[in-house]
Write a protein that binds this DNA or RNA. Structure first.
Lengths: 354, 354
DNA sequence: CGACCTATTGATCGGACTCAAGGTTGGTGG
DNA sequence: CCACCAACCTTGAGTCCGATCAATAGGTCG
């Protein structure tokens, strides 16, 4: 039985509409104002919500907004009831994610059709997934994808590289991607003046070098070893085949890539508007996040990294990095022994005033 | 019949090895130096290449490098023949994309196993794809994916927005993505000081707002209308279902996302090391590329864009943009009428000396 | 122990940001 | 139709951050 929540302050209108819906054999729950409506939405879990805009206590926008903020209710189809004149205001509601609207006064058919068409989509979804597309199941999909990827690299020859060795160069034609088994690898781009900018820091368990394969273009970056590395090469065709044929792997890659995009956008706005000081702090925290051992969160983190490398992570001159590090040292945020940098106070480092 | 290309300068070694291979009923083509080897690789299209490293004329690295540069030959499995002592040099070859190596002197079995295992992967691939994974077929997949996506938005209600209207805000909970039918929309992030950085410029036919759905997080950007826009909203569940179940759509998204990542990396290095002058030029060219009508490549491109908007695309202060535009105007690179900017000389704009 | 590479510090310079003040444009209402 | 306002554009002056150049110190490896 389909359950409909009807939120409408006008008594006559409410009873009238409820009657129409019940005659169409829907189960109807009614609320006479927005607040009650929100409560009922959470307790009753209706299949669809029909809501007036102009109401006392909390108006339709408010209801939509509140329900939209809660993941549990955000997915419920939401239809506005509105008088013709309010067309401009309507936009405001659609912005917040309403799925449809019905203008008052309405015909029975109009109302029922609107509900029917919204429900149809919703039903299809529910049937095919059985409510399975929650965080857990998509995590399992991810894990499955990862598993398949790992299998690809299993029976391959291990390759070992020493520090500063190049794994591939910008502009090279790619015929494979890599799985990093041990060590640390960075990928970077170079501009015309030969300045480097680090685009990726990789640790054991990471894949890299797949972007060129996906894009069917030459490498756009150079991969270089930072700490003695062992890696497996996965041939181009094997990889493309897998991603083409295996849904989990494709899904995994969609996730990896979208996370990557968001992170790069974050970097962009930081690079555009933050001071060197902040960016160096961010770079140190990034290194920490990427390379800290799983089970050592309490211990202080320390890493050996050349000033040049740090500079190309931040995107600045080596000297500027060094000056900033000296400041941090004076402020007891970090300590330095040769190229070994220890982060003493990550919290304060994250909240630098400028 | 599997065809093997054997490149080896030593006569005895060559004939010996060829004999072993022929006895194992492979078809063998031999070359006595690298140059001939490369030619044969291109004309004979072998299924696998076995190549000595130390050779006159062109050594094994050279052969691998040359073949690696040509997409037609880059996919052919490549096995090095090497003496034990040269282990260090070997790395150089593996860097360039060799798939395996066999150390001399070798046992028959070792050689045949190496070839067999490489071929197995290659065969599987060929059988299942029938050579179909070339540019064309993957283009068709893309098109199919796009088609499916478009269907999603077909029977939905059109929403219209005026200039500067917000479609969604950073931190909002997403319950859908959008298909832009008409107009121009930008997406941007804001930093703590309220400065904006544009992360996306959208034109009719684009989808946007899907990143938050893929990442299962709140929006990380704000979407705002630049020119009167019409758009369709595609509900979250419909979209996630489609991408989960339809291989073409997933593939399409992998492509879109990886292109996006590469573009953002490009932006990052520009932002890090280029002058405002260059970055403003890039921004203008980006606008041109994004918004120029398909069939008007000959005509000069012109766009109405506020200086503030331009500044947040470049990632700088409004005044800096204005000064740069004035310089460009003096240099006859662009012309300006109010907020209408015309690009007069895109080629020169792309090749600014600083 | 010396050669080489990396890290550090100092001094200088210039590009880009900020603040401030006018100019232009377009829209609104009397 | 004009006056006015607001939003946007433009220009100027001053300042400061960070790049660059140069010189020195420190560390490492043969």
């Amino acid at each position: 039985m389909v359950k409909i929540l009807l939120i409408e302050d006008n008594l006559e209108m409410r009873e009238n509409t409820a009657e129409i819906l019940e005659l169409a054999s829907y189960e109807v729950v009614t609320a006479e104002n927005g607040k009650i409506g929100v409560d009922l939405a959470k307790t009753e879990k209706p299949d669809i919500i029909i809501c007036d805009i102009m109401m006392p206590e909390m108006d339709g926008y408010g209801v939509l907004y509140v329900l939209g903020k809660d993941p549990k209710t955000a997915g419920i189809p939401f239809i506005f009831l509105t008088a013709k004149a309010e067309k401009r205001d309507l936009r405001k509601g659609m912005e917040q994610g309403a799925d449809d609207y019905i203008t008052k006064p309405f015909e029975e058919l109009e109302l029922l059709n609107g509900i029917e068409s919204r429900l149809k989509r919703s039903e299809v979804f529910k049937k095919e997934y059985g409510g399975g597309m929650n965080g857990l199941s998509s995590f399992i999909d991810d894990a499955k994808g990862l598993e398949e990827l790992r299998k690809l690299s299993e029976d391959r020859k291990l390759r070992t590289y020493g520090p500063k060795e190049t794994i591939y160069h910008e502009e090279d034609y790619p015929n494979g991607m890599f799985y990093l088994n041990k060590g640390k690898v960075k990928t970077f781009r170079m501009n015309e003046d030969g300045k480097e900018y680090v685009t990726g820091l990789h640790k054991p368990g990471d894949f890299f070098g797949y972007m060129a394969l996906l894009e069917e273009c030459n490498y756009t970056e150079t991969a270089e070893v930072m700490e003695d590395a062992e890696l497996f090469k996965i041939p181009k065709n094997d990889f493309l085949m897998l991603i083409q044929r295996n849904r989990d792997v494709a899904h995994k890659f969609v996730k990896m890539l979208s996370a990557n995009v968001i992170q790069k956008e974050e970097e962009l706005i930081n690079l555009a508007y933050n001071s060197i000081r902040k960016r160096v702090a961010d770079a140190l925290l990034l290194l920490r996040k990427r390379y800290m051992e799983e089970n050592s969160e309490d211990k202080e983190f320390s890493i050996a990294v050349s000033r040049d490398n740090l500079a190309s992570i931040v995107g600045t001159a080596t000297e500027s990095v060094i000056r900033t590090l000296s400041e941090f040292k004076d402020d007891k945020l970090i300590s330095v022994k040769g190229r070994q940098i220890s982060i003493l106070d990550p919290e304060r480092l994250a909240k630098l005033p400028y």
